[in-house]
Design a protein around this nucleic acid. Structure first.
Length: 858
RNA sequence: GGGUCUAUAGCUCAGUCGGCUAGAGCGUCUGGUUUACACCCAGAAGGUCGUAGGUUCGAGUCCUACUGGACCCACCA
């Protein structure tokens, strides 16, 4: 026998993967279905190890593509790697720090090439891990987010947007991390509840007629105040509007203005306005043409626009000093404990400073409008549906997008600024030089790089080689985008907007969103918590197939669910079951066996073929609807229950090699998307077909044996009841007797074999314990006290059936039910009623019979 | 503050157009060396489907409110 007793994944996995790759099975070839299927991998970070989320996402994607490939579609699964701008930068900078260096020791281009090399070192390792997971992607089309075509497309898009007036340069309040020295988009800021104080400050009126009190959580920003604002309808302050106040600690006068944005209920109803350091104040200031006074710089220090004694202090120091100074001046009216949310850097947790900075912005409203139309129009479908409406809400409220990032690692922004005229910017994609000389003018390159999402938002058409490649023609839009819910807005939303903007077409037809893999206790995995599970380790212990099935099992779209070792074990056992079923089949169809068309002879053959047909259909349907859990469950039970527990067991007594082999190969096919390694390993060992399983056709079983298969279902009923009785009554050596039953007679040997009875005999009369659940006239020879025990159970069961009978009867007596319910439902109820009556009759007979028998012996 | 998801067996979850006697895996209990597999086989127990209303002939499924859990967005001076 060529298959060993236990399936050892490691003995096969890497060989099988190499064989796939070598055979070019991953290339998208039309194998019988003219349609195309395309899927692009959300590129994992080139720099990192794969985490359990990658294992899930790639498992789902791989199931999709293997299914479609087997169906014969030209199926493209395009892999990639992400330079992961900021993420990688953070890792690299940590390494620099460890070496006692900082980024200021190097030029931008030096840094860039250093990080490039750093990433190159790690990339291969990451790709090897993808192979371990079994990802059947076309490596010849592998794309890195810094590949020339990606950069070129990003530049073209930037240029087009510039021309279309969707790009503008603006001094806006940005979310700035003074530690990392870069600004962030709104979605990269994490708000956290902070315990702080609310300070009440008196601002004296210039005319000496009193003062106005403001409340603030950031007293240090008063140094940059340029107004006090109140609500126009606030009666308390009506008279004060237009007057000037003298700003404490500073030698400045600022006006009292009115603005709708003020909430009269909050604090004192009067607000200090610091346009350069607060987004709302910035808006107010824009409306009222107020001055912008920057008193905090990009290092988080107080600038020389503030009074001398605070200059150079950190924000925190300044806060303390300002409060003390205000107290001294008697301007501080009171302070209260206060809890509010404060933005933090999602990487280093520093408090985000809202600062004014010149940045490139993308006008989002026009882009979002098209995306909203496409989603509402159902040009894109979401799984689960709710993700679509979440995205819609986001798009409907979208704000302009800051695409500038102040780090070295990324795609340089192709824009140059006139050294003599700050408002004169030109586009130039030749970013190799720091300065350009044009028409006698000197232009300096913008030192910033693009936000990663600017280029990766164009991923679907960039990777396919837009606009002229044949890949683009064949595979765009993508069939489906599979990714995690956490980047629905950042990535999915942007791909839709940019896809529509550039290609005039949606980038993908379906979006499948998966949730997080939480730890076993339902907590989010994180390095700091130490609850991270590495895919590598799981593969080592249980095999790659077990990992992917264990992750997919019991998981539904969009929901966060815990990792479960029990499920991995279950999946590993499934692989072993498959392996051993194959071993049995191999022993019955040894070397030299030739596959041939299955000809059903016995009832179990018909039944098996019918199970295969029905379940292949179910699996196909579930996979088409992205119901992976359900598809997996179906193949699991088809193999384990139908094939192994019934068909193989029966085969030990009545063998039909062709049906047996046919059953196995179809199960291997149906299981292949889920368990590619073990199924292909078996396939190769059996060597019944020349082609590899990966490109073999998906089962399409047309002949229905629905009627013929019913006979075996009867056998199953009889066998199950006998097993039940034997187990319940602890029967050991017993016989089955029957009279006038050609059905039992014809299957006597099989029944004996499957139940472990001593024998089965036809008699003209006799007594014993009758089968009641199965509709046959047969009984087992049983001792009296066993019968007595069983009588109680029988009575309980009978009563339960009577209750159910009652429910059915009442339902059928209900005139509204008969009137309103659909015909087939009513018919169904009638059939059930008849069956139930029949069953109860058998119970009654048996109860009577036992009672009489027992009495006779009393 | 706005929004989304979620509550079903001891645990983790299915349950798609409302039409069952509500399912699966794990765990538990009982019994098993049956010519693939103890990573196994046979059998069983275990549920007023979060609570309270409503719609309907009929609700785990639809509606309303409440309670618990998770998450997202916006952000309060």
């Amino acid at each position: 026998m060529s298959l060993p007793k236990i399936y050892e994944p490691h003995a096969y996995e890497s060989d099988v993967y190499q064989a796939w790759e070598k055979s070019e099975a991953f290339l998208p070839k039309n194998r019988g279905d003219h349609r195309a299927f395309s899927l692009v991998m959300p590129p994992p970070n080139a720099n990192g190890n794969l985490h359990i989320g990658h294992a899930l996402t790639n498992a789902i994607q791989d199931v999709m593509v293997r299914f479609e490939r087997m169906r014969g579609k030209a199926s493209l699964y395009l892999p990639g790697a992400d330079h992961a701008g900021f993420e990688t930068w953070v890792v690299y900078e940590k390494q620099l720090t460890a070496q006692g260096k900082t980024r200021f020791d190097f030029s931008r281009s030096e840094l860039y090439s250093q990080v490039w090399n750093f990433v190159e070192q790690n990339k291969e390792d990451m790709l090897a891990q993808l192979r371990e997971l079994g990802a059947s992607c076309d490596w010849s089309r592998f794309t890195y987010t810094l590949d020339e075509k990606v950069v070129a497309t990003a530049y073209e898009t930037f240029n087009k947007m510039w021309k279309d007036e969707l790009i503008y340069r603006g001094e806006r309040i940005v979310n700035y991390c003074t530690n990392h020295g870069t600004s962030f988009s709104d979605i990269e800021v994490v708000y956290k509840s902070d315990k702080s104080k609310l300070w009440y400050i008196d601002y004296p009126l210039s005319d000496g007629s009193g003062s106005i009190q403001v409340a603030t959580t950031r007293p240090e920003t008063m140094l940059g105040d340029t107004a006090v604002a109140v609500h126009p309808k606030d009666e308390r302050y009506k008279k004060l509007v237009g007057k000037m106040v003298r700003l404490p600690l500073c030698d400045r006068e600022i006006p009292i203005i009115e603005d709708e944005a003020i909430d009269p209920e909050f604090g004192t109803g009067a607000v200090k306005v610091t346009p350069a350091h607060d987004p709302n104040d910035y808006d107010i200031a824009s409306r009222h043409n107020l001055e912008f006074v920057r008193i905090i710089d990009f290092e988080g220090k107080i600038t020389d626009l503030a009074p001398k004694r605070f200059q150079g202090q950190s924000v925190e120091e300044a806060r303390e000093h300002v409060v003390t100074a205000l107290k001294k001046e008697g301007a501080l009216a009171k302070e209260e404990d206060y809890e509010h949310s404060v933005g933090h850097c999602y990487k280093c947790d520093s408090v985000i400073e809202p600062l004014l900075k010149d940045q490139w912005f993308v006008k989002m409203a026009p882009l979002a409008k098209k995306a909203i139309e496409a989603i509402k129009n159902k040009d894109i479908s979401f799984f689960p549906k709710s993700k679509g409406s979440q995205l819609l809400r986001y798009l409907e409220n979208i704000r302009d997008w800051n695409i500038s990032r102040q780090i070295a690692w990324g795609i340089p922004i192709p824009a140059y600024q006139n050294a003599d005229d700050p408002n004169d910017w030109i586009f130039n994609s030749d970013v190799g030089q720091e300065t350009l000389e044009i028409d006698g003018k000197t232009y300096k390159r913008d030192p910033d790089v693009f936000d990663t999402w600017f280029s990766s938002g164009q991923w679907p058409f960039v990777t396919l080689g837009y606009p002229k490649s044949s890949d683009y023609k064949h595979f765009y839009p993508l069939s489906v985008m599979e990714t995690g819910g956490e980047i629905l807005f950042q990535w999915v939303g942007r791909m839709i907007m940019l896809g529509l903007y550039i290609t005039k077409n949606v980038p993908f037809k379906d979006v499948y969103i998966h949730g997080y893999v939480l730890d076993e206790h339902g907590a989010k995995m994180s390095k700091s918590k130490g609850n991270v599970i590495a895919p590598k380790e799981i593969i080592k212990e249980y095999g790659s197939d077990a990992l992917r099935m264990g992750l997919i099992a019991g998981r539904s779209a969009g929901l966060n669910q815990g990792f479960s070792t029990a499920k991995i074990v279950g999946a590993r056992n499934f692989c072993n079951k498959l392996w051993n079923a194959a071993r049995f089949v191999e022993s019955q169809c040894p070397e030299g066996y030739k596959l041939s068309k299955p000809h059903p002879k016995t009832m179990v053959d018909y039944w098996m073929l019918e199970q295969l047909r029905v379940k292949a259909q179910t699996i196909t349907q579930k996979l088409e609807n992205y119901q992976f859990t359900e598809a997996y469950e179906t193949i699991y039970h088809l193999l384990w229950d139908d094939f192994a527990d019934w068909y193989i067991e029966v085969s030990k007594h009545q063998l039909n090699k062709d049906v047996l082999a046919f059953g196995l190969i179809n199960i291997l096919k149906l299981a292949h998307p889920f368990a590619p390694f073990v199924t292909e390993s078996i396939w190769r060992t059996l060597a019944w077909e020349k082609d590899m399983l990966i490109i073999n056709g998906w089962p399409q079983l047309k002949y229905s044996y629905e009627k013929e298969s019913k006979d075996f279902s009867r056998i199953q009923d009889v066998v199950s009841e006998i097993r039940y009785l034997r187990s319940q009554l602890h029967l050991t050596e017993n016989n089955l007797y029957y009279k006038d039953s050609p059905f039992i007679k014809a299957n006597a040997d099989l029944i004996v074999a499957l139940t472990g009875l001593l024998g089965c005999h036809e008699v003209s009369s006799g007594h014993g314990l009758h089968l009641t659940r199965a509709n046959v006239d047969a009984w087992i020879d049983v001792e009296e006290n066993a019968m007595r025990d069983y009588l109680i159970k029988l009575l309980e069961e009978r009563d339960a059936h009577m209750e159910e009978l009652k429910i059915l009867e009442t339902r059928l007596e209900n005139k509204s039910y008969l009137k309103s319910a659909p015909h087939h439902i009513v018919e169904e109820t009638r059939t059930k009623l008849a069956e139930k009556k029949n069953l109860i009759e058998r119970f009654k007979d048996e109860v009577d019979f036992i009672e009489i028998s027992l009495k006779r012996y009393l």
